[in-house]
Amino acid sequence: MKNIFLLSIILLSFSCKAQQTYPLSTDYDAVPNYSYFKDTNNELIPFVGTWKAMFDNKEITIKVDKIDHHLVEYVNHKFYQDTLFLRYIIKNSQGTVIKSTMNLPITQSGIKSIGTFPNENLVSFVYQGGDCRYGWGDVDLKLVDATHIKWRYQPEGVILTNKNCPNGADTTIYLPETSNLVFTKQ
C-alpha cells in the first residue's frame, strides 16, 4: 500500500506542469496560458515611486506602483505579469484638487503598463479613459535619469452620443496631453 501511495505521488508530480516564467519582453502569443512574465531585469523598478510636474498652471502628481504576478486576461490569453499601475492627482494653481485617482485600489487605477522597451528606457501604459472611456489612449514614461522621467500622453478619438454616454458624464480630459513633460521623483 505504501508503494502504491509513493508511486501515485511520483506520477502526480510528473503530470503537473510547473508554471513557465519568461522575461517581460516575451510575446504572450508564443507561450501557454497562465505563464508568468517576470521583471527579471528590473526594468520596472526605476519607475516606481511618486513623481511631480507642473503643466498649464496645474500640479500633477503621479504615483507608480508595481504589482508582481498580476493576472492579465485577454480574449484568448491569460497570463501573469509584473505590472506597473499609475494613479494621479491634479491640483489647480490654488492647490484645489481637480481630479484624483489616488483613493482607488492600485489595480483599479485605469492606467497600467502593457510593455517595456529596455533599449529606450521606456514603459508603455494603456489608459482606459474617464467616463464613457473618454480620453482613453497611450501613456509612455521614459526614464531620463534616476530622478526624472518624461511623460507622453496621446488620447484616442471617441465619438460620444447619448446612447453610449449619458448626459451628465464627465468628458473632461484631465491628464496632460503633451509629450516630453518632465516629472521629478519625490
Score class of each variant (00 low, 15 high):
1 M>I: 12
6 L>C: 07
7 L>C: 15
7 L>S: 14
9 I>M: 12
9 I>C: 11
10 I>D: 04
15 S>Y: 13
15 S>A: 15
18 A>Y: 06
18 A>L: 12
18 A>S: 14
23 P>N: 04
23 P>W: 05
23 P>A: 06
27 D>C: 00
27 D>E: 06
27 D>S: 06
32 P>Y: 01
33 N>S: 11
34 Y>W: 11
34 Y>P: 02
36 Y>N: 04
40 T>E: 09
41 N>W: 05
41 N>G: 03
43 E>M: 10
43 E>V: 11
45 I>W: 00
46 P>I: 15
48 V>G: 06
51 W>T: 11
52 K>G: 00
53 A>H: 03
60 I>H: 06
61 T>P: 02
61 T>L: 03
65 D>P: 05
66 K>R: 14
68 D>T: 15
70 H>D: 05
73 E>Y: 02
74 Y>V: 07
75 V>F: 09
76 N>M: 13
77 H>M: 06
79 F>D: 03
84 L>C: 09
84 L>F: 07
88 Y>F: 14
89 I>N: 04
92 N>H: 08
93 S>R: 14
94 Q>R: 15
94 Q>G: 07
96 T>W: 03
100 S>V: 12
103 N>C: 05
105 P>A: 08
106 I>H: 05
108 Q>Y: 10
108 Q>C: 04
112 K>D: 00
113 S>A: 13
115 G>N: 14
115 G>D: 08
120 E>D: 14
126 V>T: 12
128 Q>V: 13
137 G>P: 10
138 D>V: 12
141 L>M: 15
141 L>T: 06
142 K>W: 00
143 L>V: 11
143 L>R: 15
144 V>T: 06
145 D>S: 13
145 D>T: 12
146 A>R: 12
146 A>S: 14
148 H>F: 03
148 H>N: 15
150 K>Y: 07
153 Y>A: 08
156 E>M: 13
159 I>Q: 08
160 L>F: 00
162 N>W: 09
164 N>K: 11
164 N>V: 11
165 C>E: 01
170 D>E: 10
171 T>D: 01
172 T>H: 07
172 T>A: 03
173 I>D: 00
177 E>C: 10
179 S>D: 06
180 N>E: 07
181 L>F: 05
184 T>C: 01
184 T>D: 01
185 K>T: 09
185 K>S: 01
186 Q>P: 08
